[in-house]
Design a protein around this nucleic acid. Sequence first.
DNA 1: CATGAATGAGGCTTCATTCAT
DNA 2: GATGAATGAAGCCTCATTCAT
Lengths: 201, 201, 201, 201
Amino acid sequence: MARKADPGKRDAIVRGATRIFAQRGYAGTRIMEVARAAKVGKGTIYEYFRSKEDLFFATFEQIMIESEAQVAATLAATGATASERLSSMADALMRSWLPKLDLYGLVLEFWSATTASPGRQLFKSAFQNAYTEFRQAVATVIHNGMENGEFEPVDAEQLASALIGSWDALLLQAWLDPDFKPLDACRTHMQVVLQGLAKPA
Amino acid sequence: MARKADPGKRDAIVRGATRIFAQRGYAGTRIMEVARAAKVGKGTIYEYFRSKEDLFFATFEQIMIESEAQVAATLAATGATASERLSSMADALMRSWLPKLDLYGLVLEFWSATTASPGRQLFKSAFQNAYTEFRQAVATVIHNGMENGEFEPVDAEQLASALIGSWDALLLQAWLDPDFKPLDACRTHMQVVLQGLAKPA
Amino acid sequence: MARKADPGKRDAIVRGATRIFAQRGYAGTRIMEVARAAKVGKGTIYEYFRSKEDLFFATFEQIMIESEAQVAATLAATGATASERLSSMADALMRSWLPKLDLYGLVLEFWSATTASPGRQLFKSAFQNAYTEFRQAVATVIHNGMENGEFEPVDAEQLASALIGSWDALLLQAWLDPDFKPLDACRTHMQVVLQGLAKPA
Amino acid sequence: MARKADPGKRDAIVRGATRIFAQRGYAGTRIMEVARAAKVGKGTIYEYFRSKEDLFFATFEQIMIESEAQVAATLAATGATASERLSSMADALMRSWLPKLDLYGLVLEFWSATTASPGRQLFKSAFQNAYTEFRQAVATVIHNGMENGEFEPVDAEQLASALIGSWDALLLQAWLDPDFKPLDACRTHMQVVLQGLAKPA
DNA sequence: CATGAATGAGGCTTCATTCAT
DNA sequence: GATGAATGAAGCCTCATTCAT
């Protein structure tokens, strides 16, 4: 038998690629550096991925899969009231992403990648799908709050968009500026929002 | 940033570069294509800019200068109350950017570009300076609101960060999805936030 | 004005490529070496040819064009009788190719190239066309000889094929073995053949 | 030329290599494809052959050995007269190669391969040796014909070169053009040649 | 000044060969 | 012995930059 196929090797490459792509961007990434990061020969990468672009897609896929879990955790955020659930969601989202802020560069790179190359249209739709799904979840909580008389009437989808946007943007800001405290800003913001939503007693 | 005689030609190049960079991203942009877009010979570009990176920075600079005007317009937003001023600022910002959404790809590319290359650190700080300045302006309005008893006490800087973040993110969303209506979402959000800030009568 | 386009540069590259391809074969040829042979930068080759294969085609084309002239010279071979014309043709062909024996490797490479690659089907047909044309010319002389009572009846096309084949093969042999004298062998052969064709007085 | 235990496996590899080399040429052949054709693991090939070039040589050797038998058959061609023996030889040669025309690409590839690489000089001499041997055999028959008064005096070696050349070339032509009938052309040619050689009664 | 032909450093990728299993 | 996963040298090609005109 030949050297047994190490199923962990593909993962190692994707992990290496994730790091390097995040650090250098797609165009700035040298396959050679990914190989070094994965502790693999340059040629080995091509045993698992047809091309640099293919590897990029795979990396993207992996991020999506992993963030799926985070989103699930976020969506599972519980609380007695809609208010509490919204707060929990925001907190869960921020906290799940904060330790992986380095991936933000990668996410940006993906977003940016939607700009060019026809084959990368995939990114855009996959991204939008994930975004839409998440927005629906947030909107649902707001709807619940309105239905049970907790919240004033409001366009839930629109508000959800703005909320998620602010969360995203705060994380982005944190990635740009290591001194920035996104969690505090988020909580301050949510407190005001929830206050604004609340029906006067 | 060599400055040569004909400023009209320099502008033409920057304008061409802006379009191409926005369309293709930094790495995806070919100097040749910029030259074509500016109706200039390829060599001419190097009469006005030392390198591709230099041109990229000049393009960024141009965006900053132009958005300066928009920011000024935003900051000039008036209103009798802090509430009204905040609303006006949000509206002004959104409306000033909406017609230039195509530049958003470029802004993204700038953010993304801050990731790598030591020379591009310049971008990052310039960007952060602009951001900080704008946040201060927003925070000041919130402070005013608190001082004149219009708003409940709140961490103005943190809230300003979250607000600006949401505005940015909504524009980004609009760039990604042409059907998205960022202005409506922004207004809905601002209404809730202002309601949350308002001191009960 | 930019550096004036040197129309001789394309030719220089093709000439260099001809030499290197002949020496090393298609696969054995390094673009870099062609560049050196043409005294041109590596990149310059790609200003004139899209790819290595494209350059190979161009080289082939050039050979065809040049051998066209030789074939024309061969076909123009005169003589009072069909016998003399056939002799002259053989001599002319051999003599026109002998100084360019180094191209034989290239011709072989072209033939060999017909083996693989779908795009190279062109070679095969171009080659066959040239071959057919030449065979017709030789066959015509034989026909003339039969018509004017100089030659015994014979299948002119078949004989032409065999004659041209022997000429080709003798040149090939000369290319393989520098000591071999193809002209002598050719003349000996032609003498026998013409004797065999001749009607008894 | 490492010789390992299982000669059947070695043969299988050579047979596979022969097919693939003939189809794709030396440079166009992937070791992996040879392995597949031989139903062997890629690594196994290196148990039997030091390198791709070594395998190529072994393939050539095999061809030589097999064509040895054909040459022997050709040389064994009998006949009452030198004329008949020459005719028989030509016929035997053509008929023995016709069913193996697909190998012609490989032979071409061998010729072509003699062009480059110092290590391949081996091919060239082996080839020339075989060629020389065969030419001597043909020349001997012609000599016999002259000695027994059947043929006019002629340079037997030179004529032999031309005859063998034409045979080779006709087979080559048949390989290039499946519609071509080399046997007919050969017979026509030989008839003329023998007529030319014959002493007038 | 303006131009674009020329250049070559450096990237991605292939594939013969090795070697752990 | 047999295998095929792993490897990295080496090739083709791109494209920012230079420079002769």
